[in-house]
Nucleic acid binder design. Structure first.
Lengths: 198, 198, 198, 198
DNA sequence: AATGAATGAGCATTCATTCAT
DNA sequence: TATGAATGAATGCTCATTCAT
């Protein structure tokens, strides 16, 4: 991974600047300066400011997908998988506040602003959840009447809102582990199939 | 309250315009035109563009708080109360797409941009959830180990993400009722205290 | 004619600036400064830079048309009318070098750049020539085989090229009167109908 | 002269590009692409963009001078020579629209923009006209009082304006021959010396 | 000689805000 | 109170030119 890879350098700089200032308040020259590149150079790699934003999503969320997928490949138990997903997501957001802000704030902007942008990587990322739920249903672990398409939204929304509060406030009332357990437990119990014995 | 109340007219116009174009793409002149008022007049009622945005939240979310509170006052069963909250929130978002967009997108922007803005009304709105949960816990209905401060975020995040998807796509795969039942059930089962029999 | 007529002030400033620097090298801020107006003010009166250029033509050439028409209204002899036209054109170009440059250089640019611009005023101005020629033909003064549509171009082209050289060089080898007589004579003799006696 | 002569290739490419887009809208990269050469290569042969423009004139108009001169060398009758000049000019402009546009529009720009540029080739080209006129005067064919310095401008201006209209409009109301005859006849009759008989 | 990636100065246009009326 | 013309700071993007290879 050479330091001279301008494309990557710009993406990283943009993530940082978008997170700090927001898309609209970020100036191209801010990104250029952060990437230690001339303003014009940016336009050798991206078509326009929106294009940079979208690339940030695709690349950064693409990275998330990759990492989460790798971890999940080693696990088969749906309940544990859901916990892994939540843990990964929240700890990534905790570690990479820039990415967190970009996902929480700018992602929403972009969906609205750029109608043609389909958020492919994001869909891919969120669909990992429904895949796990379906797996759990096929194994009789999760209730059959749970709609994976709705549950995935509820689960992601819960995680997202929690990480959103984290980026806002410096003080953390609860630890990461504690929070994960809380959220995952609610969903696990909430989706659990009734056992005979019980 | 006459329709000539300029303040109210501007707030309503701003809600509409912010929802349609987003805060940054909305022009003061757009709001002025929508409110049938001169550009300069807006500055007789608001300090600047941000001030309008904040006022929009305060007023619109204040309205939400009021309506939800009124409905909840007639109910005492925590599980039913949670369902009422969810139903109210989602149906309001469904009905008032402008408000929905403003909450989902601009709320995040504003929290970020205006550090001094405390989102009082929004906190009030979201704290209704934790109040219900605490009530449920005191009645032995919800598990004691549920942290209301975390659960309220998870619950609101789930609702918010779902209404976000609604504002984006025209086609609705699931009905409102179906969706509400799904989400509320997950949380209800998820937070339920274990019964003796079981 | 109030000095506060911004529209007129901007047109005049633009004529001056375009003449001095050429359309492409002229900056909006140059025009604004010359017109003693803020940059943004220009956009209250014109859509864009091209629009200013076109307006300059329409107004300035409109003025030419008006003045020439007025003078010609007092004359009925076609040969004298042609001389009046030439005299007016050349002396105006001599007097108003800015307008001269704008006509010679920018008019050509604009016709090329803005395909949809029809140069109405300019056509009107040049058609005065063909009208005179037709009049002369109907009176048997000019040859019948002269095509007014071609002759008008030749006549205007001759005048234009001459005034072009004037704007370039400081030294004038010939006087204005001398030059007018030369050019007009060529065309008058050149278009004359053969007399019986001859 | 091999096609690998970069200098020539660039000149030809520039002529084409300047004609199509105009000097200011033409990009160096456009010329480079048209010449199948790298952007930087152009700067091995020319100092800057203006330099290319000037070179285009010198070379292209030089070619005109050469061709016209060759043809005129075979003729000695001034009236016929003038007709040859007009015919050559107009048919060249008709055939080579790129050159025509460059002469009509960019020539004027350049004269203005680059004060130090003396347009030597262009002067040479236009002076052919005055040379012919002087020849005609020495032979008693053209009137003595015609000033060749003025008449050459009038003649060239007439031809130029006519070819300008050609480049603008697709439809041609008159044929080339018809037009040439019209223009040349006006000037011939217009400059004719009075015959004894008359 | 040739390349083309990189540079960074330059500018048209927008729009929040002001203020004379 | 209300207006809306006027302001001018701010910025995304272009492109002539350079220079390391």
């Amino acid at each position: 991974m050479k330091t001279t890879d301008k494309h990557t350098k710009i993406i990283q700089a943009a993530t940082k600047v978008f997170a700090k200032k927001g898309f609209f308040n970020a100036r191209i020259s801010d990104i250029a300066k952060e990437a230690k590149v001339a303003d014009g150079t940016i336009y050798l790699y991206f078509n326009n400011k929106f294009d940079i934003l979208i690339s940030v999503f695709e690349e950064e969320i693409g990275g998330l997908v990759e990492q989460v997928s790798k971890l999940l490949a080693e696990e088969t138990e749906p309940r544990k998988m859901l916990k892994i997903y939540a843990t990964m997501h929240l700890s990534m957001m905790k570690k990479n506040k820039n990415l967190a802000e970009v996902i929480q704030i700018e992602l929403r902007q972009s969906t609205k602003l750029i109608k043609e942008y389909r958020n492919n990587k994001f869909s891919e990322y969120i669909n990992i959840i429904s895949t796990i739920i379906k797996l759990g249903q096929s194994q009789g672990i999760f209730r059959e009447d749970i709609k994976p398409g709705i549950a995935k939204r509820a689960f992601f929304g819960a995680l997202d809102e929690i990480s959103r509060v984290w980026t806002l406030s410096l003080k953390n009332t609860y630890t990461v582990d504690e929070t994960i357990t809380q959220v995952v437990d609610i969903f696990l119990f909430g989706m659990l199939a009734p056992t005979k014995k019980r």
